[in-house]
Structures are given as C-alpha cells and as structure tokens.
Computed example of a mutant assay.
Amino acid sequence: MKNLLYILAFLLSQGLIAQTALYNSGNIRIHDEGQIGFHTNLINNAAFDQNLGLAGFYGSSTISVSGAFMPIFYDTEIANEQGVLLNTPLSVSSNNNFIVGNFITPRQERDVYFNFLPNAFYVGESNASKVDGYVTINDQQNFIFPVGDAEYLRSLTLNSSSNNSLARCAYYYENPANPASFSESFDPSRKPRTMGDISAVEFWHLEGGVSSTIQISWNQRSNMGDLTDDAAKIIPVGWSISAGAWVNLGAATVVGDLEQGFVISESFIPNDFAIITFSAEATAKELLTLDNYLVTPNGDGVNDALYIEELELSNDDTISIFNRNGQKVYEEANYTNGFTGYSNVDNLVINREAGLPNGVYFYLIAMKDLDLNYQGYLYLEH
C-alpha cells in the first residue's frame, strides 16, 4: 500500500488570531511511491530535498509556501482553484501535473520562482492551470515555459543552441511603456523607422545566456489589429539593454491571423534584452512622408549625396530629378545614393563636367513593387 499522508492542519494560536500551517524543521521526507497532500500552508525551514513520490497541493483555499529553504519535490501536482502562492522558490526534479489552479509568484521578486531541475517536465498546462509569475529551468536546452497571468496561459518556447545553466521567464499583461509590476519602463518611440508601433498590451521577461530562438503567440486579447492589418508583418521585438531601444529580433516564421497565431524569432541572446513583445514591420505608407532634401557635395561627409532612407523598403524603384525648367537632369533605377550634383542624362545640360548649378530641383520617385509614387524638392549647393 502506498504511503499516503494527508496534511490537514497544524494550528498555531496568537491571541484570537489563528493560522494553519505545516512547519518542516527537517523531519519530513517523501519516500518512493509515497504521496503527501498539502491542504494547508507549508513553512519550510529545513532541507527538504531528498524526496521521491508525489507532493500535491489541494483544497479550495489559497496555499502559501514560505520559509528559509526551497523545497525540492520529485513529482508535484496542483488541484486547487485558488492557487499556490510561492513566497520561496519551489523545485521539481521529475514531473509537475497541472490540473486546476496556478502556482503564483510575486513578479517584483524574481528570485521567487517555480523551478524545473534538469530533465524535469510538466503536463496539463492550460488557461486554468499554469505558473502566474516566474519559471526557471536548470541545465536544459529546449523548454516551453508554462507562464501566463491569472486568466490566460501565455507560453514562451525557448530553443537554445546548447544547455542553459539557468533560464528564467515570466509573462506580463502590462503596457511596456508603463508597467505596473516591472521595475523599468520602455519608451515606445525608441525604435527604428522600419518598425511600427510597439505592443501596449503585454510582454515577456526572459533571461538566458545561450544563443536561442523563441516562439511567442498572440490571442484576441493581444489586439494585434492595433499594430498592423497584415499578420504576416508581425515581428518579435526586444528592448536592447546596450542600445536603450527596441530591436527587431527577426521573424523566421509567422503563422496565423490577427486573432491568433505565433511567431518564431531568429537567434539572439536573451540576456541582451530586458523584455520581449510584439511589433510589426512598418509599411511604406507609414514611413514614406518624404521630405525636401539638401545636397552639398563638398566632400565633408555630410549630405554629399542625395540619401533617401525610405527607398531601402523597395526592391523596384526609380528616381527622376528635374530642374526648375522641367528638364530631366538625373535618372536612376533602384537608386543607390548616386546623385551628387551631376547629371547622368544625355541631353542639353550645359557645362556637365562642372556639375549642375546651385538651386532648387524637383524629384519624382516611383516604388513599383509597393505601388507608391512620391514627389518633392531638393536644394543643391556645391
């Protein structure tokens, strides 16, 4: 017969106030095929790390785990709708079974987490049962972090080039620009022009020192329609710690529509980024408010050629430049910053070798692959 121990309560009294808890001071151990069912708080003040069998968290009231030592269980499971609040880390060395309820960690304390030791795994994760807070892994290469918030499972899949001695992850249903429970905020305007708006809904915090790819998903609550009207344009982005700005992590694969889907990133090192969330590639229409330009080809390295950054978005463009009399003085397909004040058109340009005269010129740009056309002015001054 399995060694079955149900911990119901140890009653402590202080005046009229009563609190139930199991205090472990070093004389509890779960043997092979043994089972222990926690229906009350666990205060772990001694080593609790040679366990086998199953430790389950049950009942209909929130259970807290606290104390000076991290309990290390073999198999664990949770069947408690009110959840298990971790005030100290908890480790599992074999399997965790998510049934009902969340393991909850305080996000402001990243050193409190649900920890999967080498080769540990889990089953049964769902919106109803997951880790609402931080999960860590030890000496594992590939892992799906069963993280989320109180309402939804919002897993992050980590695929690394080698084992992570330690990797840590949590999901935040908060605006990165003004998070409620994260110690930093992240300016959505600090991004390249080729990147659209940054998600104001959610983000992940991921730590790891090994080059990795990630997979993150979106659902209806993610409001991806606020970022783009084309799911294929969705990209994962991270806040670069060194640059202090948002960086495109690269979308190797994008699957889904604006209601639900997922994206797989290119390789990066998680520790280089403070948080990760969604953005979208900026469309040409969003970017192309073309300006009037100054060209001063005097060799000082500033405005020596006509440079139009937005043309990098097109793979089939042409530019034509005209003087004030409507005479074409320059033309180039797939423009590569070639205009430096000299004509390349074989017509009646006078003193071609001396360069075009100073003054105002008119440009026309066609981006054929994007079905966009623009016009504007430039001022040439030698």
Rank of each mutant, 00 (worst) to 15 (best):
L4A: 08
L22Q: 13
Y23V: 14
N24Q: 10
G26C: 02
N27K: 03
L42V: 11
L42H: 02
L42W: 04
L54A: 02
I63S: 00
M70T: 15
P71D: 10
F73G: 04
A79Q: 05
Q82C: 05
G83W: 08
L86G: 07
N96Y: 10
V112P: 01
V112F: 00
Y113R: 03
F116V: 03
A120S: 11
S129P: 07
V131H: 00
D139K: 00
P146W: 07
R154E: 12
N163S: 10
A170D: 01
Y173M: 13
N178I: 03
N178S: 15
A180F: 10
S181C: 03
S181A: 08
E184V: 09
S185E: 12
P192A: 15
D197E: 14
V210Y: 07
I214P: 06
Q215E: 15
N223E: 14
L227Y: 04
I234C: 08
P236E: 14
G256L: 14
Q260V: 11
P270D: 02
D272N: 13
I275K: 03
T277F: 12
E281C: 12
A282W: 05
A282H: 03
K285Q: 15
L290T: 14
G299A: 09
D300H: 11
V302M: 10
S320W: 09
F322Q: 06
F322L: 01
E331T: 01
N334K: 10
T340L: 04
G341R: 02
I350K: 11
N351Y: 05
E353G: 03
V360R: 09
F362V: 11
Y363A: 00
D369W: 11
Y374F: 15
Y379E: 09
L380V: 04
E381M: 10
